[in-house]
């Protein structure tokens, strides 16, 4: 697979992934958890091209995702950029052909993406009463605990949404690793 072609295909792939994320992801959800297709693609792009290019993909992908899904515009971009920073940590020092590298990248990326996104939503809610947390299953919150809102929402969200998504995304990365490995490394 040619690195250049893949580079130029990325914007279209990100658009398609965003579209699928807002339409088809719910059809392949497992126990209520959807895969993060855009995140997966951004992490793949970061593993191939590094964090510098990954940031751009994260911004574009996040923008498309927010446009298609109706989320606060820019929030997904910020969360994806945070994930890109984590996923691209070992870009220059670790070989992505080692199986643990893409798996760790997507696992950490999902964790950071999820935590960042929830954090952004909570911040928006606190700042501007933005009803961004409507999608968070509030029945997971334990009202008996006398804790601040952010802690009562944050914990269950990470436990019941972020961590299962982390597992789901890692499994998907495991499946696409053979394709990823066909893209050659950067020639220094």
């Amino acid at each position: 697979m040619n690195r250049g072609w893949f580079f130029y295909l990325m914007p279209f792939l990100l658009l398609a992934a965003s579209l699928l994320q807002s339409t088809a992801a719910s059809r392949i959800q497992v126990r209520g958890v959807k895969p993060d297709l855009v995140l997966l693609l951004v992490v793949v792009g970061t593993l191939i091209y590094g964090s510098r290019e990954g940031l751009l993909w994260a911004f574009i992908g996040g923008l498309a995702l927010d446009l298609f899904s109706g989320g606060p515009l820019g929030s997904s971009s910020l969360a994806l950029m945070a994930a890109t920073l984590v996923a691209g940590v070992g870009y220059s020092s670790l070989s992505r052909y080692h199986l643990l590298v893409p798996l760790s990248a997507i696992a950490l990326g999902t964790l950071v993406y999820g935590v960042s996104y929830v954090g952004i939503l909570l911040a928006l809610e606190a700042l501007a009463n933005f009803p961004a947390l409507a999608e968070v299953p509030l029945d997971l919150v334990r009202p008996d605990l006398d804790l601040p809102l952010w802690s009562t929402l944050f914990g269950p969200t990470v436990q019941y949404i972020v961590l299962p998504a982390l597992f789901y995304n890692t499994v998907l990365m495991l499946l696409i690793t053979p394709v990823l490995n066909r893209v050659p490394e950067r020639q220094e």
Partner: peptide
Amino acid sequence: MRNTERRPWSIADFTIRLVLLVLAALLLL
């Protein structure tokens, strides 16, 4: 075809890009 690795990795370049994109996202928000 564009050489996607035409420039070496630079922390300054990376930081500028990161800051610009974060600012753009915050602006959109």
